[in-house]
Amino acid sequence: MVAARRILEGLATVLLVCFVTFFFTSKMPGSEAAVICGPAGTACVRHESAILYLNHPFFERFFHWLGELLQGNLGVTLAPPEPIGSVIAGAYPITLELIIYSQVIAVVVAIPVAMWSALRANGLFDRLSTTATFATLAIPVFIVGPLLALVFTVKLPWFPGPAANVPSLWSDPGQNLYVMFLPSLTLAIGSIAVYQRLLRADMVATLEEDFIVMARAKGLSTARILFRHALRPSTFTTMTVAGIQVGSLITGAIIVETVFALHGLGSVLTAAVAAKDLPTVQAVTIVVAVFYIVCNVLIDFLYTVIDPRVRRGRRA
């Protein structure tokens, strides 16, 4: 019941995003026909405008575009003409991997650091990690990226530099994860700081709870108390923020792709914007928005997995 409602809400949001995207891109100066024709002249523009439905009223064009979209047809890039669907299909794996890989790194680093900080709140380690996370929060991705690239590919040649060939994750996973490590770490650094701060704060509160004292009284080890009893009830804020963060991760991924010369959605988008390729900009925006909404709906479901009190329909 709840699940169905949440999915419907998600679909409504997607529809709204489609409308807003189409509205703003169609109001942008410059016509698609002009882009295609270049200096070819008015006859060409008139011809292309007819093909692209540019002379029809706004809502007619919107519903035509939406109808094509619902059939899975994202349109054609302006110049040279290529199906946008296949352009995106070729680019999205890099971006998706970058986001997932960075989040895995962020979680793996943030959880132990947050736990250790919370366990000895205001101790030396806590204060050091607080300082370190604030410092990383203050440095933007476009500084961190070149810096990491400089240190770990030039000064210390441990990783391949930008423009390295990225093999597919499925054919050569080891090499893929190795090449993608530095870009993913760059994207992860901001997330590490955010997750560490939030998780530490919630963990400090959880560790004050009666059930933690009871777990101690059972004679359990500190590690067991932290992982089995304290971690799950401390993750709610972190999860919510992780969902919201997906948006800034996508922005971050675009920058990281530029810095490390990766061919993901970010490079498709920047190229399309530069070329005034509006159909491609629209399509990428829609794909990214759908991804963002799907992530947040998934996180809503995750709450019910993590906290049994959110589940409904069982007797109380």
């Binding site: 009666d210 059930f211 009830p233 993590i306």
Partner: peptide
Amino acid sequence: IFQDPVTSLNPVV
């Protein structure tokens, strides 16, 4: 055995 039985049990376990 603690004062408040409801808060001495872990809500998510």
